[in-house]
Computed example of a mutant assay.
Amino acid sequence: MVSPRALRRAVAGLLLPVLLGACGEEPGGPPLHPGEDEPGPRHLPAGFSSLPTPQGNPLTPEGVALGRWLFHSPSLSSTGQVSCASCHDQARAFSDDAALSRRGVTGQPLARHTPPLVNLAWVGELFWDGGMKNLESLSLAPLTHPDELGQADLPALMERLAAQPEAVRRFEAAFGPGGLSLSNLLRALAQFQRTLVSADSRYDRWRRGEPGEALSAQEEAGLALVQRHCAPCHGTELFTDNAFHNNGLDSRFGSDTEVTRGRGRITLSTEDDGRYKTPTLRNVTRSAPYMHDGRLATLDAVLEHYRHGMVPSATLDPLFQRGDGAPGLSLEDGEKAAILAFLEALTDESFLTDSRLGPPEPE
């Protein structure tokens, strides 16, 4: 067993390389192909043949299992009562039903809505403002945020884990003797989150040409409307461009230190004020409420925002400028209904209920 003093020194020495190195690591490792004897999803979105993994963190069954255990473990929180899954509910596409969650260690509302965790293997900058570059660095923010998991002392967290025989056993199974470290904790969480792939909705089965799978005429009309009006932001089979846009929610934005600047808080450029990450439309019918602050409770309200509720600002995306000068999208009532019908076809019940993604059975 590693002594607490030695573990504290090791963790302290690892923290800075993790913050600098993990954030800069680019994908480039061997891809994972569904159907092989490896952990991972049973299906990928149409047009994707492999699940990208970084060179420094290839997926392994033991690594994914450790990440899954950590994701659902309250041991990561300062109170021992809150886990990643407390806010990221699988049945809600690993999102939250509150506009601003209060499920962290302090019970205080968070500044932004809990984003869904869907198809993250293909995402670059993460969070609503792109503040983290990859999955290996992602979990540092919720781990250390005072209102989320509240871990102000990461070395102390690792000492507590080192005192748990199950944790030591799982880390060593995934990373070998002495494998219990902060960097490996982050790698394991990243491995698990990379396997959160949604690609088995009715739409996906229709795209694959599976027997008996079809979209209704209204759903096909909705798909065509999404491709016509929404594709610049929600294009590709991921149904997001993984970019940042100002979609007319506000006309004024906060100061340099406030999250209301959106992407501008990260780039410190006023041209990015009010721009937020485009969320995927996959499982969107199960991930309400909507927008970066959860201000819109329903998809109907979202479409009404695009029809009549957008406000102009200096950084409003030009995509939303109509010919009459007012921002918004020109959608008739029937077109709105068709889009809503199609969005339902993007619901992946197998993803929302897959027991391989839920809490593991106690050993």
Score class of each variant (00 low, 15 high):
Asp96Asn: 12
Ala345Tyr: 00
Arg68Ala: 12
Pro232Gly: 13
Asp333Arg: 02
Met158Arg: 04
Arg112Leu: 02
Thr236Arg: 12
Ser86Gly: 13
Pro362Met: 04
Leu32Val: 12
Gly235Trp: 09
Trp206Asp: 12
Met1Tyr: 15
Leu346Gly: 07
Ala345Gly: 05
Glu26Asn: 15
His113Glu: 07
Pro155Ile: 02
Asp147Lys: 12
Ala301His: 13
Leu303Trp: 07
Ala174Phe: 07
Ala188His: 06
Pro39Arg: 10
Arg263Gln: 10
Pro61Asp: 13
Cys84Ile: 03
Val11Thr: 15
Gly35Asn: 10
Ala297Val: 09
Arg92Phe: 11
Arg92Gln: 13
His292Val: 04
Cys23Ala: 12
Leu238Val: 11
His113Thr: 09
Pro279Val: 01
Met310Glu: 14
Ser287Phe: 02
Pro312Glu: 14
Arg263Asn: 12
Pro27Asp: 02
Cys87Gly: 10
Pro61Ala: 07
Asp96Glu: 11
Thr236Pro: 04
Gly179Phe: 01
Phe253Trp: 04
Leu340Glu: 01
Thr315Glu: 06
His72Val: 12
Val64Asn: 08
Glu219Pro: 04
Glu136Ile: 04
Ala341Cys: 03
His308Ala: 15
Glu25Gln: 12
Glu363Val: 03
Gly209Trp: 04
Ala65Phe: 10
Arg282Trp: 00
Leu225Tyr: 06
Ala190Cys: 08
Gly262Glu: 05
Gly150Ala: 12
Arg265Phe: 08
Pro312Cys: 11
Val105Ala: 07
Ala46Gly: 15
Ser78Ile: 01
Ala231Thr: 14
Gly235Ala: 13
Thr144Leu: 10
Gly107Met: 11
Leu303Ile: 02
Gly248Ala: 15
Glu148Trp: 10
Pro116Leu: 07
Thr298Ala: 02
Cys230Phe: 00
Leu7Gly: 10
Gly262Gln: 11
Arg263Ala: 05
Arg8Asp: 14
Thr260Asp: 04
Asp153Lys: 08
Arg102Trp: 07
Gly56Tyr: 05
Leu343Ala: 03
Arg228Gln: 14
Val197Asn: 06
Leu343Gly: 01
Pro74Val: 04
Thr240Gly: 08
Gly13Leu: 00
Asp37Gly: 14
Ser95Tyr: 01
Pro146Trp: 07
Leu14Val: 14
Leu249His: 02
Gln321Gly: 12
Ala190Phe: 11
Ala99Gln: 05
Leu331Arg: 11
